[in-house]
């Protein structure tokens, strides 16, 4: 079966600065694919190019054979995007957020309402149905963002740092959801800098640093290769990307 997503020689330059330096990867149907890297490695830039929110400087990404450069609209119908930053509509209730979002995909109201109610139940948001967004905790907002990303029944779900800033309880609940979706065969792209998360959820992953892929494989393969099977994926990550701080 051909891969769902293919990135080839994908590049993004901001003037002199090279954020993504010609990376290649493929995501197969039904797998959870991890994009790992320290802060500023190029994860979000890659995701933004995939979601057609950022023009490419070079190379191409295709989703189900459609190219981001040629058919952004066609691709956007196929993606469900759960962003890193909270961008729910603060003026709308939980339910209304989902309904308004479904319109962007031309989903008729009756169907949208059905799907929204189903997702609200699935993500345990039913007590909050009519609440405004500001009443939700960080974990609930994230769950609503995930529910929103599924309203168009996407072929690929993109989770951009889904658990950053969440407490351990909320984090575990999100992991549970991701595993549940994987069981249903949903192709997922996950970016994270929590290595434990990648180890737990990803079938395959790439580690990127300074816009380049430094290693790829299954979590097990990487531990075998770099640590002779002794240690965690985090040890591999630190070995490959170094220990210096990345925020400056």
């Amino acid at each position: 079966m051909p891969p769902v997503i293919t990135a080839s020689q994908l590049r993004k330059n901001y003037g002199e600065l090279c954020a993504v330096a010609g990376i290649d990867f493929e995501i197969n149907r039904g797998e959870c694919f991890g994009l790992l890297g320290p802060n500023g490695a190029g994860k979000t830039t890659t995701v933004k190019m995939l979601t057609c929110a950022l023009p490419l400087s070079g190379g191409d990404i295709t989703v189900e054979g459609l190219s981001v450069a040629k058919d952004p609209r066609g691709i956007k119908y196929l993606l469900g995007v759960c962003p890193q930053e909270m961008n729910l509509d603060p003026d709308f209730s939980v339910l209304k957020n989902l309904i308004v979002y479904s319109r962007y995909f031309d989903i008729p109201y009756a169907e949208a309402k059905g799907r929204a109610e189903e997702l609200i139940n699935r993500f345990h948001l039913h007590d909050k149905l009519d609440r405004p967004i500001e009443d939700l905790s960080g974990g609930l907002k994230k769950r609503l963002l995930m529910a929103r990303a599924l309203i168009n029944k996407p072929r690929v779900l993109i989770l951009d740092e889904p658990t950053t800033g969440l407490d351990p309880q909320s984090r575990r609940q999100i992991w549970e959801e991701v595993r549940e979706m994987k069981k249903h065969g949903l192709t997922t792209l996950l970016t994270t800098h929590y290595i434990e998360e990648a180890e737990l959820l990803c079938d395959r992953l790439v580690i990127i640093d300074a816009g380049k892929i430094v290693e790829q494989g299954t979590p097990r393969q990487l531990i075998e290769k770099h640590l002779e099977g002794k240690g965690s994926l985090e040890d591999v990550f630190l070995k490959l990307t170094g220990k210096h701080l990345r925020d400056e």
Partner: peptide
């Protein structure tokens, strides 16, 4: 502030 456009740009709207 609300990042509304960031949310909508990932949907089929240009």
């Amino acid at each position: 502030y609300q990042k509304t456009f960031d949310a909508v740009i990932t949907t089929p709207l240009s």
